[in-house]
């Protein structure tokens, strides 16, 4: 079970009224390499991974939901005060017709979230996929930072990108734990 703490993991501030940025951010909400996909992937893999690394998948999968919530907050702040005309200019006309101002699980190109989450049941295969997922999410944050001029949004995105780095590091350590050989070749 989960306990909910009623605050964001890291503050989200939006400095520039530019609804178009929401269209880019939604990639991390409902995109293949987004936070929802990450959360579902890790929490689902927990059951068939050796017990030594279940806790890691549990913790990181849970944290991904906190990231999802930060992204949703940014998208909501950017779109809640936009007129339908402004949304149309920002390329969000299709979104508005289908979903109004609600946040929705699709990617930056408007494709609905597809449960493109793999769980192979092979611990090494799954952890390598997790490492790749973290690196892909890190890249997505880089591309959004490159395309966005709002320093406040980029501050929050920089935080989220750093978390991807830490998660990737931990998944790489999980692989080392499961390999079990690292203590035998400790020469340093």
């Amino acid at each position: 079970m989960w306990y909910y703490e009623k605050k964001l993991q890291y503050p989200v501030r939006v400095g520039i009224c530019n609804p178009g940025v929401a269209k880019f951010l939604i990639e991390q909400y409902g995109g293949t390499d987004g936070e929802l996909a990450a959360a579902l992937r890790y929490l689902n893999q927990r059951y068939t991974i050796p017990s030594r690394v279940i806790g890691l998948l549990n913790d990181i999968g849970t944290e991904e939901f906190a990231h999802l919530e930060m992204i949703a907050t940014m998208v909501y702040k950017l779109t809640k005060d936009a007129t339908p005309e402004q949304l149309k200019e920002a390329g969000l006309g299709d979104h508005y017709v289908d979903h109004g101002k609600s946040v929705y699980y699709h990617n930056a190109a408007g494709q609905k979230y597809d449960l493109g989450v793999q769980s192979k049941g092979d611990p090494i295969a799954d952890l390598y996929e997790d490492i790749a997922a973290e690196e892909k999410a890190r890249s997505t944050y880089q591309w959004i930072i490159n395309i966005t001029d709002d320093p406040l949004i980029n501050d929050s995105l920089g935080y989220l990108r750093e978390r991807e780095i830490v998660h990737s590091q931990r998944f790489r350590e999980a692989v080392e734990i499961l390999k079990e050989e690292q203590s035998k070749k400790r020469i340093f």
Partner: peptide, 17 residues
């Protein structure tokens, strides 16, 4: 909190290249 990690050794900030 500000850096997104407890470890200076894991902090790798990003800027627009």
């Amino acid at each position: 909190l500000a850096h997104g990690t407890l470890w200076p050794g894991l902090y790798t900030p990003y800027t627009n290249p």
